[in-house]
């Protein structure tokens, strides 16, 4: 085993201790004059980078339809069992769509598995981190809250194309 070396040979100035105290004081004083890191939250909001995993949302195309084909993979992979999908048929090109799509935000752990497993790029993690509810009913997000226009999610989709 390598022998541990301790810093024992302090110089006389270090032993007197007082100059070292003043060094410490100078350091804290310098820091008092430095710019502050604090972000004053409600007025000034943190805008996360594209790699941030916020609230999962469903991508809404320009024509107002969702991309989701209700395959149920996200629901299947979700480790917290937070997603519930009810599929239905439609006359549109993709033939299937989710009649009901619910994410229980109390259960969601923001792992991003749903987004990773999705074959249609239909569910992605947004930058939204302001999630607060006053009761459990409110915490279950339906399609009305989950659908977000694709233009707002371009950042994340590009990130996924580069790194997924």
């Amino acid at each position: 085993m390598a022998e541990k070396k301790r810093l024992k040979d302090l110089s006389i100035w270090q032993k007197i201790y007082i100059p070292e105290i003043f060094k410490g004081l100078a350091l804290t004083f310098k820091n008092m004059l430095k710019p502050k890191f604090t972000m004053e939250y409600p007025e000034e909001k943190f805008i996360p980078p594209a790699s941030y995993r916020g609230r999962p949302v469903l991508v809404q195309e320009e024509n107002g339809e969702e991309r989701c084909v209700a395959c149920g993979l996200c629901s299947r992979v979700c480790p917290a069992l937070a997603i519930e999908v009810q599929a239905a048929e439609t006359e549109r090109e993709k033939e299937r769509y989710p009649e009901r799509f619910e994410i229980n935000m109390i259960r969601c752990i923001f792992c991003g598995f749903c987004e990773e497993v999705c074959p249609e790029e239909a569910i992605v993690m947004s930058k939204d981190y302001e999630l607060a509810f006053t009761n459990r009913q409110e915490a279950i997000y339906g399609k009305d809250k989950l659908l977000v226009p694709v233009s707002q999610l371009q950042d994340r989709i590009e990130f996924l194309r580069n790194y997924k």
Binding site: F29, N31, M32, P35, K36, T38, E40
Partner: peptide
């Protein structure tokens, strides 16, 4: 306030 400044924070405001 001073503790906040020394730690690069703003303190009560």
């Amino acid at each position: 306030k001073i503790s906040a400044w020394a730690q690069n924070r703003l303190g009560p405001n």
